[in-house]
Nucleic acid binder design. Structure first.
Lengths: 110, 110
DNA sequence: TCCATTATTCGATGATACTGGAATAATCGT
DNA sequence: ACGATTATTCCAGTATCATCGAATAATGGA
């Protein structure tokens, strides 16, 4: 992942509403969630949510498909994977011993 | 890691100068790097750098110790580990199959 | 103590971000 | 075709952010 895409992803997730939206979509899994449902679940106005969904979308963190009147959003795990890979790449660059605890902590979560 | 600390870390890293600084410090490793060296390496003015170092510091992503006239900064890998753990926790919550490719990609880097 | 070095703090400015109300688009059912 | 539903776009207003020049602190050496 190149730096600019990393910056987009990080700044997109570095905002409370958007982090909440993304986490909600991750939890929703492959079936995703409609914009209206997200808005109600998080108590955000539709237009504000649209704006934030668009930012997440530009950053590649969510996808969407229309489904009747609703538009359904999904977390894009590929981008998330790339982001984590980029951050860990830095972390590991040259000093595997620093990275090891990170991997151990991660491994036990899954 | 709780959500607020996650937000602090993500928004701190979601800005080009600060991401550059943090990556430089990660590469510098345990011996860290003095503020002046960082400023020169990245072509940032001292006062601007100070401001950004402070933001990284509040977010827990860097530490510092005075060393004569210089102040030496270090990347704080613990916070980085916690951040990655938090993000992956979401990723894995309920659906390990989504998380698996992430782990595989990460594993091969170290 | 005085000066040079290194870094931070202060104050201001221009740019960007977040949100909200109103208007617009797209779809569905009748 | 019309109204209802769902979501986005447009446009403003406020707040926050990033950076800069200048001034201030802290340290070390002569």
């Amino acid at each position: 992942m190149e730096k600019n895409r990393t910056l987009d992803a990080l700044s997109a997730l570095g905002q409370e509403t958007r982090l909440d939206v993304f986490r909600l979509l991750v939890r929703a899994g492959p079936q995703g969630q409609a914009a209206g449902e997200i808005a109600e679940a998080l108590g955000v106005r539709p237009n504000t949510l649209s704006s934030n969904l668009n930012i997440l979308s530009v950053a590649g963190l969510v996808r969407s498909t229309r489904e009747g009147r609703s538009i359904r959003y999904f977390a894009n795990m590929e981008t998330m994977r790339d982001l984590l890979g980029f951050l860990l790449e830095d972390c590991c660059g040259g000093q595997a011993e620093l990275c090891q605890p990170v991997l151990e902590q991660i491994a036990c979560k899954c």
